[in-house]
Amino acid sequence: MRILVALLGLWLAVGKAKQPIDGASAFEKTGTTPLPALPGFRVVQGPTTYGPDNLFEYIDGGADAFLLFEFEELQTTTFLGPQQVEVTVDLYRHKDADRAYGIYALERPPGATPIAVGVEGYAGGDYLQFAIGSFYVKLVQSGPKADFVLRRFAEKIADKLGGRKSAPAVLGAFPEKGKVLRSEKMAPSNFLGHSFFHDGISVHYQIDGASFHLFVVRGTDSSDARKMVERYRAVAKAPAAEVKPAGSETLKDPYHGEVLLRWSGRWLWGAIEQASPLRPQLLDELGQRLIQGQ
């Protein structure tokens, strides 16, 4: 019996050790987010933390956009390495992985070359930024130029933080044809500027000289989705009609012009801006994938 208990204890211990502990979990337990050590580098400032109430002290009015994406805490730490190379690491922790990716995507420059760190990252001469799990991570280097330092730091940080390494699943529903790479944008609320919409995602498309966006809004359930359609129809001054559980309609949005709108179950999806003969086909494809995936 004792042997059995000991084996069970050993099995539990091994199992626990194997469980990934992401940075957010570590924060919950310790009050700080773990940062890796890089040989030759030492902490010279921080970690300093900022919360929703004082983030503006660190990034001024830029804080407001982070708050919309349910920012929870920033931890900033500066390291000094060989030849006076200084690296500042900012870990922005958000409520969840979708929101962390959302603020990352909002700040991502168009045409940025992606690098494989976390979900995705990009870099310039003296900076590197990436999303992973519920974190949006920014690294800035100063002092003498040192190749690969930021990349090495970023990879170690990503390993240490853990968490989801993939973009929000709904992005996979957008058709590839004509998609402008890395043009995905998420709105945490008031999608398209309409207060009756919840969060939404839009992706830019360019096909045969036409430029337009496809979008997806997710309701909490079918009834919620239909309510959003009703509100949208009212804004567009569409003739009164019963909104069925699934449907398709072209609306005249007073701010965005003609909108092709479709809905089914909890999903709304559509297209705005320049008309293209391919839009209906792309919307069919998008709708099928959404419905299959729900």
């Binding site: 001024d60 009015g61 830029g62 420059p109």
Partner: peptide, 9 residues
């Protein structure tokens, strides 16, 4: 606006 808002976006 500001130079730094949304990293320039």
């Amino acid at each position: 606006t500001a130079h730094g808002y949304q990293d320039g976006r």
